[in-house]
Simulated assay, not measured.
Amino acid sequence: MTSISFSDAERRTAFTVAEAELIREMGNVSIVKFLGGTDQATARENWFAKIEEFVEVLPDGVFIALDASDGQVALRLAGGSTVVLRLWEARYAPTLEDSWRIMLKPRLAPVVVDMVGTALWGDVWVEAVAGALEGEPLPVVPSGDRPFGTFMREAREQLSASGAVEATVRGWTVQAAPEDAPWPWFTDEQTAHRAAKALALGTDRIGALFSDWQRASDG
């Protein structure tokens, strides 16, 4: 697992960037209220507690750096992947056709580990995750008609305009535990099914699998 503690300078820079982005997206709103704080210092602490809690369950070699240099706050990851943070969400959107959104909860970190593993090792990693799973993956269902948040709504609107079939326009949801709601959401069904296996495997087991593959690759 990754032990991480962001510097005060990193925290302040990221918070400033996140605040500016929130105002661009939603107008003159208070990021302090969104983050459940009474002032900027407590709001920033609340936010980074969740970010660090999420990053710390990732196996060594997945997380590279926190990046706030491009007008957004992002986690740079191995394999060239980048996950953008929107307060309590993590969003991956290299293309409209293969995008996803999860909440910043450690139990949902396997989605990120699987993405990085697939970027590094391709189909053989995907097969290894499936082979390590005992039992069934989590259910994958077409998403409901009410999207959660602007990211899902905008993705649906763009997919609809592109002429995508109805199920794709709605997207796909992996039914995780009730406490992990809003559940992980994907525009690509295959990616959703892959994530469903990773989530069923669990944070510790997929982390151990990734570490084994990393050692084998380095050796």
Rank of each mutant, 00 (worst) to 15 (best):
R153F: 10
T150M: 11
E157M: 11
P139T: 03
A192G: 07
V169C: 06
A192T: 03
P139R: 07
E157D: 12
L133K: 08
T173Q: 07
L120H: 00
A119T: 12
L120S: 01
P147I: 03
P139I: 05
K105Q: 12
L199C: 06
A176L: 09
W88V: 05
F148P: 04
E89N: 11
D123W: 08
W125L: 02
Q158R: 15
A155E: 06
P142L: 08
V126F: 13
G171K: 00
W172A: 02
V112I: 05
L138M: 14
L133Q: 08
L138W: 08
T191F: 08
W100S: 13
G144R: 06
Q175D: 10
G202Y: 03
V116W: 01
Q214E: 14
P139H: 07
V116D: 00
M103P: 00
W125P: 02
A155K: 07
R205H: 13
A196G: 04
V169I: 15
Q158V: 10
H193P: 01
E127C: 09
G144P: 01
V111E: 05
G171R: 00
S99Q: 02
V124T: 10
S99M: 05
P178R: 05
K197P: 01
P106E: 01
A164V: 03
A119M: 12
S160F: 14
A119C: 12
G171M: 02
G171Y: 00
G135E: 09
G131W: 12
S99T: 04
G171S: 03
A198T: 02
F148V: 15
L201S: 02
A196H: 03
W125I: 05
T203E: 08
A195T: 03
E157N: 12
E97M: 01
D204Q: 11
M152F: 10
A109S: 13
M152D: 11
G135W: 05
R215P: 07
L96T: 09
D204S: 11
L209A: 13
T95I: 06
V165P: 00
T203W: 14
D114R: 14
D212H: 07
T187C: 01
W121T: 04
L87G: 08
G135L: 06
R156H: 11
L138S: 05
F151D: 05
A132P: 07
E134H: 11
F148D: 11
P110M: 13
W88T: 04
F210E: 01
L104F: 14
P106N: 04
T173A: 09
R215Y: 15
G149N: 05
W213R: 09
V129M: 08
L201P: 00
W125V: 06
S160L: 15
A90N: 03
